[in-house]
Design a protein around this nucleic acid. Structure first.
Lengths: 353, 353
DNA sequence: CAATTGCGAAAAACCGATTTATCCATTGCC
DNA sequence: GGCAATGGATAAATCGGTTTTTCGCAATTG
């Protein structure tokens, strides 16, 4: 391999052609492994490629082929472990199929979400995996449909029939949480969530409510939903406790809510699970190393990504048929933060490191 | 805006040209706002654009201009809050300048890191922000230099003069940690880290050691470094405590190490800060809501990203001159996990909120 | 021996844009 | 009226590739 200092212009296919004494078309064929080239010429091309350190420009290539091997991924934020893992997996899966992944964050803005999709369209991506800010009935989704893009939606989806969707089975997981809390004797639970994530919040809330009321009709379920930011949620929660409300357990429908709850407990000097129990949707690494370890619903992140890519490539390859709505099962880890209302810690059922 | 059902072929500049009854060159000029076009024609072009829903293909455009408005970003992982924030900021800053950000993760592999850089080069990106797996003396960096790419390095850098580098001032922060621990009476501290991140680990360790020994020459500093994975670190730590070693404080040089330490304390039933104190490099949201709140060094993530983009664009715009090595100051938050060796909790100095 | 066939490679068209060179029609000036 | 200058638009070249068409030449066939 020839390492030149810092070549101003990269060698193009024509440079290779003239160095090898053949035409550009021949070089192109050699690069693609077409068999109808004489071995002698193949060798000369390879030599020239080696000498010049030639690498083809994939974008130029794809321009001519009018098909870009690019998959777009749009998530509400990069900062969370959840979406970070999603992007990592999608990148892996795309590359595995010879595609490049281009990721963008909508920063929880539907306006931006739509702009990003327009950009992806301009880039002529082959397909898009979209984790919408709110749900799949958004300007961005409408744009995708109108402009004929192929894509799948993940995470915050309603599972209506507009797109292929993949998400965690929030309702089932919430039902399991309900069983655990009811089983431990809780009859007054506060549920907190962010309304902005309408799609998931709804499933998580109703899944919980239905199961809880089925098991304990006398159950009291309070709900605090804040529209679009955690700050008002924090305020409402402070207000709620300030008024003397004293549920025996809090169920947070999203990760940041769990943090808000913990910090509010902290302010008041309450300890889990003696003073109050806590379960959160979404697991994080730190939850098993703190005192107490925090009970959480673990989403099948990697599986969601895998299924999304599978479905997406089926569509890219032209599969027709009605859109599917996949629900992937969660795991619920009941850790020390959940106990019985009496004040005793719940025995056993640690989550084994 | 004409919303067609699902156009098979997107309109090109030629389609617009023929619909408007002008040449493609004229359309191109109108799109770029060149003034030498008759108003009547400008109007006709705009009409045609509107009617067809035309949007230019930026990649085709940039092919001709042989300059792609793309910035590459390479980080070791997407899952962490730190790199998530970095990517978010870089994306924002790139877009602000009319560039698109293409992010990729090296997944802590130097081999992959190099491959990604080759891909970025193939894409003819204008510049790269690289957060190297180990440090800036890597195959990837050599490749960048050899192929004349312009780029800056962040985070795990040695600050030698090969590239522009930006990182947190680890040494200064570590010195501050040392002052705090010594000030609280600690004379036996265990430092844990991952050797793979050689660049940062070294600065953090030596910064701590130098300051600690300067203040307390009798200080005993034990060090456990694991090469490339946390698992062996966990094992070593278990072994270390198992042998009866009992430092009064642990200083973890990286986030996951803090988790390992906490989980090991947990296994042994030790509580911070009564049984042992803990400080970690890298802050996380959860650290201020747990009991105890965990003391941590807060890196100036956004500032690092901003400076990186600034320097990068200066280079892209042709600025010459020797490479710089920027060190951005950290903040050290001494929370409840640090106390005095005697066993008493350290009074005051909570971190607000 | 002329016509057909087939192989391998080059020439040319194309992808979707931009940019340079060219061209036509006025207009200005002497 | 003749000639240069100018405004405005188009044709053509270009970017870095791929693909179709054409072409030269040798081997096969009638």
């Amino acid at each position: 391999m020839a390492v030149q200092g810092a070549p101003q212009r990269r060698p193009s296919i024509h440079d290779v052609a003239s160095h090898a004494g053949v035409s550009a078309a021949t070089v192109s064929k050699v690069m693609q492994g077409v068999a109808t080239v004489k071995p002698a010429n193949v060798q000369r091309v390879f030599d020239a490629v080696e000498r010049l350190g030639y690498r083809m420009d994939p974008l130029a290539s794809e321009l001519r082929r009018s098909k870009r091997r690019i998959i777009g991924a749009v998530v509400p934020e990069f900062e969370s472990e959840f979406f970070g893992t999603v992007i990592t997996e999608l990148e892996r899966l795309a590359e595995q199929r010879g595609y490049a992944l281009v990721a963008a964050s909508s920063r929880e803005s539907e306006t931006r979400e739509k702009e990003i999709l327009a950009r992806m369209h301009d880039w002529r991506v082959s397909g898009v995996v979209l984790a919408p800010v709110r749900n799949e009935r958004s300007p961005a989704a409408a744009f995708m449909k109108a402009s004929g893009m192929t894509g799948v939606m993940i995470d915050r989806v309603l599972a209506d029939n507009a797109f292929d969707t993949i998400s965690a089975d929030s309702a089932a997981a919430s039902a399991e949480v309900a069983r655990a809390l009811v089983g431990n004797g809780h009859r007054h639970v506060l549920v907190i969530g962010l309304g902005e994530h309408a799609a998931t919040v709804h499933a998580r809330l109703e899944g919980f409510r239905a199961q809880a009321l089925a098991l304990a009709p006398d159950m009291r379920i309070d709900v605090i939903l804040s529209e679009s930011d955690v700050a008002p949620l924090r305020a409402s929660l402070r207000d709620y406790f300030g008024k003397g409300e004293r549920p025996t357990a809090v169920y947070s429908l999203f990760l940041k809510g769990t943090l808000v709850a913990l910090s509010e407990f902290r302010r008041r000097g309450w300890h889990c699970p003696n003073d109050i129990s806590l379960v959160g949707f979404d697991d994080a690494e730190w939850m098993q190393v703190t005192f107490p370890a925090i009970a959480a619903v673990v989403q099948p992140v990697r599986r969601i990504a895998t299924q999304a890519m599978d479905l997406l490539f089926r569509r890219i390859e032209g599969e027709e048929g009605p859109s599917r709505a996949l629900l992937e099962p969660c795991k619920v880890l009941m850790r020390e933060s959940v106990g019985s209302p009496g004040g005793g810690a719940r025995p056993g059922a640690g989550d084994g490191q």
